[in-house]
């Protein structure tokens, strides 16, 4: 049983490599069906949603970015046959499943408030001043359930209502601003922009100054790295590639 399963997994993995390297479809043994804008497509199993859409013939010029789960551009909403729950994902990070009904959300229609944090008092009401709709939160928790980063979004929204900059900053730290929370919110809150205001305020007023940053800024301002910059800027493309690869190889992994 266990062995059979392993074989199957290997076959699926093979299917994945054949799909991504353009090998003949006949060699692919495992297929799934997905639905894009309601239309059914047959795609190899074991692709990410993004790869599956591309396999199906879609070409992205929006809803795609880093392809590595960091940029938040490939927000996706879907349902799977047999489950009423609406789900969300980053298309580049989530595997396509059989029976997925997919739609890409390239942008959340959210207005970002304009402010200069240097002119704002470190007072919790700043949240309501720029995002008064925070007061409409009904604690339904839809935002938290929606977040592809698994953040406790409702908790940081609540912290914002209470004017707690630290909690907003810490609890929203891994936000990639994909906007899915704002799309689903019944109170029409723009969670991720409010969180950014919180992180900025906390960074400016809540945290003590980081001595290493101060030192490095001084060094930059005093021209310490000018020579290095000039050198890099004068390199030819192939030389630059070499330097880049060398630097990547020597880079500290943390």
């Amino acid at each position: 049983m266990e062995e059979k399963r392993r074989d199957l997994m290997e076959e699926i993995a093979e299917a994945n490599s054949s799909a991504s390297s353009g090998i003949d479809d006949k060699k692919i043994k495992h297929w799934i069906h997905i639905y894009v804008l309601g239309k059914q497509y047959k795609v190899p199993a074991s692709l990410t949603i993004m790869q599956a859409l591309e396999y199906a013939g879609y070409r992205f010029n929006k809803s795609v970015g880093c392809r590595a789960g960091f940029c938040g551009a490939c927000s996706t909403m879907y349902r799977v046959e047999g489950d009423y729950k609406i789900k969300t994902a980053l298309a580049c990070q989530t595997m396509a499943e059989d029976g997925m009904y997919l739609v890409q959300i390239p942008f959340s229609p959210a207005v970002k408030a304009k402010y200069d944090i240097n002119n704002e008092p470190y007072d919790g009401n700043v949240f309501l001043k720029y995002y008064p709709e925070l007061a409409r939160c009904v604690s339904c928790n839809t935002c938290t359930k929606t977040c592809p980063q698994d953040l406790q979004v409702m908790d940081y929204v609540q912290a914002a209502i209470k004017g707690d900059f630290q909690k907003v900053a810490e609890w929203s730290f891994d936000c990639i601003q994909c906007g899915l929370c704002a799309v689903r919110c019944p109170a029409e809150i723009v969670q991720y922009h409010a969180a950014q205001l919180g992180r900025r305020m906390y960074g400016k007023y809540g945290l003590s100054e980081e001595p290493n940053i101060v030192k490095r800024v001084e060094e930059i301002m005093s021209g310490k790295f000018e020579e290095e910059f000039k050198k890099v800027m004068s390199l030819q493309k192939d030389e630059l590639e070499k330097v880049y690869v060398k630097q990547q190889n020597e880079r500290e992994i943390y």
């Binding site: 009904v138 604690s139 339904c140 928790n141 406790q152 409702m154 908790d155 609540q158 209470k162």
Partner: peptide, 25 residues
Amino acid sequence: PKWNCCGAVSSIVTDDLMHQLAPAR
């Protein structure tokens, strides 16, 4: 721990459960 805003006023129409969530949580 992690309490949320109660909603300040109670929802008093018969079919509105959404606004009872916050206190319940």
